[in-house]
Amino acid sequence: MATLAMRTGLDFRPANVYGVWLRHWLAFKGGWLVDSTAIVIEPLFVLLAVGFGIGKFVEDIQGNLSYQEFVAPGIIAANAMWPALFNCSWGAYQRMENHKIFETMISAPVNLSELAAGEIVWGATRAAMTTAAVLLVATLLGLINSSLAILILPLGFLVGLVFGGMGLVYASIAPTQHSMMLIFTLIGTPIFFFSGAFFPIASLHTGLQPIAWAMPLTGAVHVARGLSTGDLGMSHLYGLLYMIGLASVFYPLSFMLLRRKLII
């Protein structure tokens, strides 16, 4: 009976999710200076180099929008991806395989569904931190045109949930530590560059456009741009729903795969 409750997720202790999240928060506080540089400085370099370096050579996009204004929300949304993906793939793999922390947690009364939720929500928290920092700078640079843009913050959290889940799924099926690199080179990088953050998807070859639209980040970039310009439509709602759908698929998948890997 209890195992049935476990399988169906009825036996779920939210306090444990907070416990796992708090572990990450403590670890983060321990080395926050180093971590915050990754959070803030890297996306700023991208924003400055692409927006003001490359941007100089680009004409206005989509009517009266300057390239800087076009690219800023894209960069904000796209940069929310990295911390979540990194924490839940590379970081989670380290904790699981090298430090055996997952094993410690599941020997304590923590179920994998709670552990996975804690990992993913922490990834999303990191994503929201990055989003907040870059959003602030972009606003100060005058690249944000609408007060709706404050909603990019929860959007960044959602991006974190999606990519945290994706990272954890990959960490639970990756055969070796070395193969963990693949999620960055084969999945992260193409998503980063081809999800419409840096150029309109419409400028891609028509055959490639559906693929670009299906990428997990595209919806977020689209919504972020809508929020930044204040020009919203149904397509933004679909984008949002697509992201929520992905997050709710990756999360259960991640803890089922973790169970297969760890409970042996």
Partner: peptide, 10 residues
């Protein structure tokens, strides 16, 4: 457990 399972980040 045989491995310590201690958290090196804490």
């Amino acid at each position: 457990a045989q491995h310590d399972g201690l958290d090196p980040d804490l």
